[in-house]
Design a protein around this nucleic acid. Structure first.
Length: 486
DNA sequence: AGCCGTTTCGG
DNA sequence: CGAAACGGC
């Protein structure tokens, strides 16, 4: 008989299905105590951002409900893991402590020490994989090294079998009377100015909502994904990113459901099959980011290509503020930054456009953009955020070459041809016809007047001239290229 | 997962 | 003549 309770420590795995730590606890048979520890005080610069705190509140409420249905209370505590976990384990007389692994460098270091400390007290400690298709160390080159290029990584990933998701435990035995803090006391929701209205209208945190999103995506949108995923005015992406980030759904579940979709397509998958594989490749980009972060822990702070340390960045605070608040004068950039502010999320195509604009048109360090995204995105993920900013900036692994500079006008006209996206987020430009919507400064005075727009009053003039900014960026890049060669 | 200036192709 | 292909950034 193993009567001594099992402590399950929830982190970025806020779900009951396909949760190996919870599953193992249920199998063990002893009473289960579920803990969520608000540990962001020890996260340094990478504690939960504002938008993520809003999400976390909803996700914890949802998890508490799902666990409650199964007879287990979610215990909430705050503080340092190295103190809280041993104390709680002692308090309940735990015989085992289980958790699912996280891969942020600060969590890896902390959890490794904690695991050892707990084991020394005689408790069984075990960690599991809930967050990735494969552990970052398990995908290896033929020489046993790590990958720096996506395509061979993706090929290697496809060679490996993905573990089947495990079902949610049906009923468990809980343990009554364990002291818990109250979620509402954590102040995760905004108080004075309530800026979360757009988030509430856009999102429903929690495991059930995540399953619903995946189901709806596979039923309606995945078929056209390959062709429509780049159109920010359409609702053609899965929008699973925040759910995946908080572990309300796991990549194995997404993988399995998409493979079932592919099987239903039969022998002639065609367009739908191509789209579904494209979607799986996006999941693989997420894996690739974790792989990079694991093997290069400085990824969130330092350029992966060291020669970029000498890049002549600008410290134009006014330009940075204009970018943050969507006042650059380039409609697709500004629409994106306002979507981000209002909803905590940004369409992937527009992420690339606004990031390219910050780094190449304004020459502002990618770390500034990374930090802004960290605070405003509900899906801010250390691995994906860092890897993607470095990708756009040209200093990352398998990055777009630096000289690949997005033209915000052409990108807007190509991917938002009907102007739906820009008009939704910049209503002040809504009356402009498509012909000038993405370049209002070129509109004839008469057209602006008819559209009721005074540039510089209702909408900014361009912060920089893209053509000149592009030349400036190429010249700056030339400087570090020269330096690297000598 | 670009852009742009230039050259070549084809009706 | 515009479209497509190409090569440098």
């Amino acid at each position: 008989m193993t009567a001594s309770p099992t402590l399950v420590w929830f982190r970025l795995d806020l779900r009951v299905s396909d949760n190996p730590a919870l599953h193992a606890a249920a199998e063990r048979g002893a009473p289960v105590v579920a803990l969520f520890l608000l540990d962001d005080a020890e996260a340094g610069a990478w504690g939960f951002g504002g938008a993520q705190r809003w999400w976390l509140h909803g996700s914890l409420a949802s998890l508490a409900g799902s666990l409650g249905e199964r007879g287990v209370e979610l215990v909430l505590r705050r503080g340092r893991a190295a103190e809280i976990l041993p104390a709680l384990a002692g308090e309940i007389g735990a015989g085992a402590v289980y958790w699912n692994r996280c891969y942020e460098p600060w969590r890896i270091a902390r959890d490794r020490r904690l695991k050892q400390a707990l084991a020394e007290t005689g408790v069984e400690v075990e960690s599991f994989n809930a967050a990735l298709l494969h552990e970052p160390w398990a995908v290896q080159t033929l020489q046993g090294g790590s990958y720096g290029v996506f395509t061979p990584f993706w090929r290697a990933l496809q060679q490996r079998a993905v573990a089947a998701p495990s079902p949610a435990p049906s009923a468990m035995t809980g343990l009554r009377g364990v002291e818990s803090e109250v979620l509402a006391d954590w102040g995760l929701l905004p108080a004075k100015p309530d800026w979360a209205g757009g988030l509430r209208r856009t999102w429903t945190p929690g495991e059930k909502a995540a399953e619903g999103r995946l189901g709806a995506f596979l039923q309606q949108a995945v078929e056209g994904y390959a062709e429509e995923r780049d159109r920010p005015g359409l609702d053609s992406t899965s929008r699973l990113s925040p759910h995946l980030h908080f572990g309300e759904i796991g990549p194995r579940q997404v993988w399995a459901a998409t493979r079932r979709f592919l099987e239903r397509q039969g022998s002639a998958p065609g367009k739908a099959g191509k789209s579904a594989w494209k979607f799986l490749a996006e999941l693989a980009w997420r894996e690739f980011s974790y792989h990079l972060l694991f093997h290069h822990p400085a990824l969130p702070e330092q350029p992966w290509r060291p020669q970029f340390a000498a890049f002549p960045w600008s410290d134009d605070e006014a330009a940075f503020a204009a970018w943050c608040h969507g006042r650059t004068g380039y409609p697709v950039v500004d629409a994106g930054m306002r979507q981000l502010w209002a909803t905590g999320w940004l369409h992937n195509r527009v992420r690339m456009i606004v990031a390219s604009f910050l780094v190449k048109d304004l020459l502002i360090p990618w770390q500034r953009g990374e930090a802004w995204f960290w605070d405003t995105l509900v899906d801010a993920d250390l691995a994906s955020n860092a890897a993607s900013w470095q990708w756009v900036s040209g200093c990352g692994a398998d990055a777009a070459p630096y000289f690949r500079i997005f033209n915000p006008v052409l990108q807007g006209e190509k991917f938002d041809p009907g102007g739906d996206y820009v008009r939704r987020w910049l209503p002040e430009l809504a009356a402009l016809p498509d012909s000038h919507l993405h370049r209002p400064w070129e509109a004839p005075a008469e057209l602006l007047r008819r559209s009721g727009i005074v540039l510089g009053r209702d909408y900014p003039l361009p912060l920089v001239d893209h053509r000149r900014a592009r030349e400036r960026a190429l010249a700056a890049f030339e400087e570090i290229r020269k330096e690297a060669a000598t």
